[in-house]
Amino acid sequence: MVDDKTVDVLQKKKVRLNNTAILFLILVVMFALFSYVGRPFFFSKLNLIPMINNLSFVGIIAAILTMVMVSGEIDFSIGGNIGLTACLTALLLEKGLPGWLVVIIALAGGFAMGAFNGMLVTVVGVNSIIATIGTMFIWRGIGYTITNGESKLALNTVIDYIGRGFVFKVIPFPIVLLVAVFIITYIIMNHSKWGRRIYAIGANPLASFLSGINVKKVKFIGFLFCGAAAALGGLVLTSLSAVGMPQHGQGQELVIISAIILGGTALGGGRGQILGTLAGVFILSVLYNFLTIMNIYYFYIQMVQGSVLILVVSTYEIRQAVARRRT
């Protein structure tokens, strides 16, 4: 009884593309405008490469966190995770461990932090907002403790490469990481069985459970990889700044979550697009970069960032309300 199937498919595609497409359009316009207004510095290698490097560490985490958020959970502990990872990295380097081993340990630490969050949420049953706000403080507290609150130099050829290396001498390594993470998460979310489970759980956890999906396992693995992604981000940040300090990543959880929400992911789960998150990350970072190089006072920048988030999300709400009115 399937009739005019093609028409409907087209219509649905159109609707789904809209929000993300609009975001990319905004991004292009912003970029063009900023390149003109901020000429010649904005559109120069000297500005763009550090900007994209910085954006990469946000984007890597945002991509994975999008998966967690689509499944209906959230992770606030990423900022603390970044700080702890940075401290751990610097300390281990200080102890004289080889760079590659430090990277492995740091990532393992990230997995461990993610596993802890996942356990709290899926086994103990703590609400993920509460659980991860708690662990956010704990991770950062541990960072302060092990470094005594001091920043430590983190210089090592391997670590340096993660944030400041170039692949084929031209492509900054963080960008390679970013692209890789986005391709992988895009395939998972849009084309894999795993991604289907994530969307289904976000759309209706009880129905998913009663359809035989192991809801807890899917959520746990989301947290697990979110921890690892945050640790990877922490490594990039440590490398970019060449120091490990417990303040690293402070407040970043909100920036990252803002970017994801800006990209169209629903807080309650079930809806969200990896490409939307990518656009969200770019919009917030490009805006921040532009305002900074235009010498706008930092306090004002914060206000602008907040306003953009509210503006975009309000637009979503209005569009949805209009759509609902029509149906």
Binding site: Y199, A200, A203, N204, S208, L210, G270
Partner: peptide, 8 residues
């Protein structure tokens, strides 16, 4: 509530 992911 128990059977369908309504938005899918």
């Amino acid at each position: 509530i128990e059977g369908l992911a309504l938005m899918m």
